[in-house]
Design a protein around this nucleic acid. Structure first.
Length: 583
RNA sequence: GCGCUCGUAGCUCAAUGGAUAGAGUACUGGCCUCCGAAGCCAGGGGUUGUGGGUUCGAUCCCCGCCGAGCGCGCCA
């Protein structure tokens, strides 16, 4: 018995319809034949709208076309019933054997059930997913958590669907924000030695900055101490707080000299290490941590701007170099190199994306916060202007997370340090609930996260509903004490209830769902699927007893339960959610 | 003002252009001497913001309006 080859009912029915179409309307042979799973059980296992599609061109009543198609359908051992319904839908009901065929297929494939064949040929094969990429200037917050959960689940989903996926984090280790963090830590350090310089309101206020100052003091004593007067003497006469902050950074660089690099490197390393540990604990892993600074060190930024200049899309104005992004649909042109010679963040981002393309990815997927949406036209424009295929870049926007605590919207400013960290959220709600909760809405939907609700009602989180189904199956299989490996070959004829067929249909849907969700970059569809699957299982489990006296019935039901457990495992692991044996 | 995204049950959210728009939650009423009640079954709940258009068929595609979030820097 070829249990390892899943019976593909959809493909089978499509071939039957194509044969019927060839005799009813041979000239329409190219029309796409779609088979969908009806929402209502009374509409059968699969439905085709082929007759409706043809009605217009054939200028015939769709029901008449449907009748002709059904008459011409080749006979099939897998089809129990064909009905014409509604406006002209052709509804197929499969035989019991065809409906349960998925069970041995699941058990044979195991962890591989649902896995797509490696993409080959013209299809994009090598994908890169870049996500989180938060500035390493402080702890990750709940907004980053959403990007992390989405990106990680998406990457896993794409890999399972058959793509070769690289997960990447872009480290902004070259910009002003890192300088601000370094000077913030240094000022806190000076405070420890009674050399207080008024702390800038736009510096990083969080407690972790003081902690890093303490670390530097413990490791190196007063080595980096300079009199507060010396620092203040460097400051420009201005009321502009940003200019003042830049003055403080310059003061730090001047007074510390070579030692500035140590402070800068220390705070960067501390934050990056913390960020990485946070994400790993969250089950989010990256293959590549890509340094922005390396783009400067290898001359890639210069090269990228030079490429744009050569293509004639750069002009000089007010001493700065501008990229004419309006020619590519942007609202206005953008500076790539300032009048002081310093490249903008945009310049390094162009270099970064060109570098991604040079690494040979067929598709580059950026997961960005929704506030960056205005950035898309200029990046795509720069890629097009550089002679690259901008369509190889897909940008997915993840909408904001608003936190509510006691009915109040919580502040989310990184610099003020008044925000709920991802770590706090994980500790309050738990990793599994966190990962699953983030996936319970599509990414382009703004998310209101009620902390009190998540905490107080954590037992009502849908993730437990899914995990509970898994634990129940584990429990039943353990009580049976039989040979689980033998269940893949049992006779499934005793499966006769509608709930059993519905559960089988749900299992059979899994491989299709993987492909569709991967195509749409929609891992949330997987979370909703698992909820539905668990619901089908709980309903069946409450209606029918598994460990009955009759051996044939018992084993058939155990096989169905075990197949369900397998699909729950495959799906939950893609979402980074654990599959407890007991709860 | 211009641009991007969004608007679905009281609340939180689903729905490859398909049939009577679905779940959860809350509310009401049932189900454990029997495999885990973190469960199941049943019930009420909707003019899919609004007005047009395309289509055999629109929550989905197009246009106007209303409302919300975000963006519009030689910041990152």
């Amino acid at each position: 018995m070829a249990a390892s080859i899943p019976f593909d009912a959809r493909q089978h029915l499509a071939s039957l319809l194509r044969a019927a179409l060839a005799s009813v309307a041979p000239e329409r042979g190219l029309v796409e034949i779609l088979l969908e799973r009806p929402k209502q059980a009374s509409h059968g296992d699969f439905a085709s709208n082929l007759a409706l599609q043809l009605a217009r061109e054939l200028k015939t009543n769709p029901r008449q076309i449907a009748e002709r198609l059904v008459r011409e359908l080749p006979p099939s051992a897998a089809v129990a019933k064909v009905e014409i319904a509604g406006a002209g839908f052709i509804n197929f009901t499969l035989t019991p054997a065809a409906r349960t065929a998925v069970v041995p297929a699941v058990l044979a494939a195991g962890h591989g059930f649902g896995r797509g064949a490696p993409k080959a040929g013209k299809a994009a094969q090598r994908l890169q997913v870049e996500f989180v990429s938060a500035n390493p200037t402080g702890p990750l917050h709940v907004g980053h958590g959403r990007g992390a959960a989405y990106g990680a689940s998406l990457a896993s989903l794409l890999a399972f669907a058959g793509y070769d996926v690289t997960r990447e984090y872009y480290v902004n280790d070259a910009g002003r924000q890192m300088d601000i963090l370094a000077v913030s830590a240094w000022l806190r350090y000076l405070e420890l030695f009674d050399e207080p310089v008024p702390f800038p309101p736009n510096g990083y206020q969080g407690g972790y900055v003081r902690e890093m100052a303490e670390q530097v003091k413990t490791a190196h004593g007063d080595r980096y101490v300079h009199p507060a007067e010396a620092v203040l003497a460097c400051l420009p006469e201005t009321e502009d707080i940003e200019a003042k902050l830049d003055g403080l950074i310059l003061a730090g660089k001047d007074l510390l000299g070579e030692d500035w690099a140590y402070i800068h490197g220390h705070v960067l390393n501390e934050q990056l290490t913390d960020c990485r540990a946070d994400l790993e604990e969250f089950g989010v892993h990256f293959d590549v941590w890509f340094s922005e600074r390396s783009l400067y060190e290898t001359g890639m930024v210069e090269r990228a701007v030079a490429t744009l200049e050569k293509s004639g899309h750069i002009y000089l104005q007010d001493g700065a170099k501008w990229f004419s992004s309006t020619a590519f649909g942007d609202e206005k042109d953008r500076v790539v190199q300032r009048d002081n010679g310093i490249y903008t963040y945009f310049a390094s981002d162009i270099a970064y994306h060109l570098n991604k393309f040079e690494r040979g990815f067929d598709k580059v997927i950026d997961v960005w916060g929704a506030d960056h949406h205005g950035y898309i036209p200029r990046v795509k424009g720069a890629l097009a202007a550089s002679g690259a295929d901008a369509d190889r870049l897909d940008v997915t926007l993840v909408q904001f997370v608003s936190l509510f605590r006691e009915g109040q919207k919580a502040s989310m400013s990184t610099r003020s340090g008044e925000y709920v960290t991802l770590r706090q959220l994980r500790e309050e709600v738990g990793n599994d609930a966190c990962r699953f909760f983030y996936m319970l809405r599509k990414c382009d939907q703004a998310l209101d996260f009620d902390l009190d609700l998540a905490k107080s009602q954590s037992n009502e989180n849908p993730v437990y509903y899914v995990q509970y189904a898994h634990a129940r199956i584990c429990s039943v299989l353990a009580q049976w004490e039989g040979d689980q490996a033998a269940l893949g070959a049992v006779d499934l004829a005793p499966l006769q209830h509608e709930r059993e067929f519905a559960l089988c249909a749900r299992l059979a849907e899994f491989p299709e769902l993987i492909q569709v969700a991967a195509r749409d970059y929609a891992p949330h569809a997987l979370a909703f699927y698992l909820k539905d699957l668990a619901g089908d299982f709980h309903g069946w489990y409450n209606a029918e007893r598994v460990l009955v006296d009759d051996k044939a019935t018992r084993e058939a039901r155990l096989a169905l339960a075990m197949a369900t457990r397998q699909v729950l495992q495959n799906g939950l692991s893609l979402l980074g959610v654990s599959q407890p044996v007991s709860m």
